[in-house]
Design a protein around this nucleic acid. Sequence first.
DNA 1: AAAATCGGATCTGACCTGGA
DNA 2: TCCAGGTCAGATCCGATTTT
Length: 289
Amino acid sequence: MDQDKLQLQLMRSYLENTQINMQIAHYTKVGVNWRTNNRMPNENRLYFIREGEGWIHIRGKDYSPRRGQLYLLPAGMRLSYAPVVENPLGKYWCHFSATVGDVNLFQMLELPHWIEVQDERKLEQQFEELIELSSGSQVTAPLRIKSILLDIISEYIEQSDDQLHLTAMSSTSKINSVLSYIERHLAEPMTVEELAKLVHFHPNYFLHYFKTMMGLSPIVYINKKRLDKARRLLSTTDMSVSAIADEIGLELYYFSRIFKKSVNLSPTEYRKASGKVYIDGDEVWVEGE
DNA sequence: AAAATCGGATCTGACCTGGA
DNA sequence: TCCAGGTCAGATCCGATTTT
C-alpha cells in the first residue's frame, strides 16, 4: 500500500529528472537486409509501424510488429530483428536517449515493448514533425523535438499504466534506496554522511553521485520534498504552522523562512490563497477536492 | 497572549575543485 | 571511488515585530 505510493513518488522523481535527446528520426520502408542479430544498441528506439510485417526479438520474446503498433526498444537490451521479405515493414522510427543522471530511464522503468496506438493520425503527425524539425534549421527545433518526444513517451507510459513499475535493477539500485530513505525520514534531520553510508560511498563522492542522478544536491532535494509536503499539509489540513514545521523536521522560524523564499508567500498566506484562483485579478473561490 | 513572521549575526557542514 | 582544503550556502540562535 505505502510501498505503492513510494514507487509512484520514485517514478515521478525519475521522470522529473529525465533528460531527453533525439539523435535521428525517419520514415523507412525496410529492405531485405534490415536485420540484426543479438545486438545491443546504445540508443533507445521508437518504431511506429505503418505497413508490412516483420520480426523483433527482445528480452527472450518474439514480436510480430504490425500496423498501428508503437514499439519502444530500450538501449542496452539484446535486440534482433528481421523483415518478412514478401511484405516488408514500413515504419516511422527514431533514436533517442532518455537519462536520469547517467542511467537510462528505461533501465529504471519497466514498460511493455509495444502499445496499440490510440490516435494514429496524431502520432503520424508527430513523427512527421520530428523528421521535419531534425532536418530544418529553426533555433527552437531542439525544444520542439524534446517536447514532442516527451509527449509521445508520456502517452506511452500512460497507456501502459497497468504494466508500469520500477525494474528490479532500480528497486535495488543505490539511488533508489537513498530516495526511499529520504521519503521515510523527512521528519528527521538527515546528513549527507548518513545518506552516503546507506550506499557505502564517501560523502564527497556521494554528493557528486546524487547530483548527477537527481540534478539537485541532496539537501536541496530534501528540502524540496519537505516543502512539497508542507504545501500539501497547509492546503489539505488545518494543522498549525508549527505542527507542520514539526512534521517535516524543521524549526518554525527556519521553516517559514525557506517556505517564503521558495513560494514567495508565508505559510499562512499560502494556506489562505490555496483553493483560490485569480481570474483577471479577481479572487475566485474554488471548491477543493 | 500566543502564534507566526522577519531580519541580522554567526557558525557549521554541504558542496566544489583538483588530484590520486 | 576516495581524499584534502577552501568557499559559501544552509542552518541556528535570538530578539523584534506583526498577525490572529
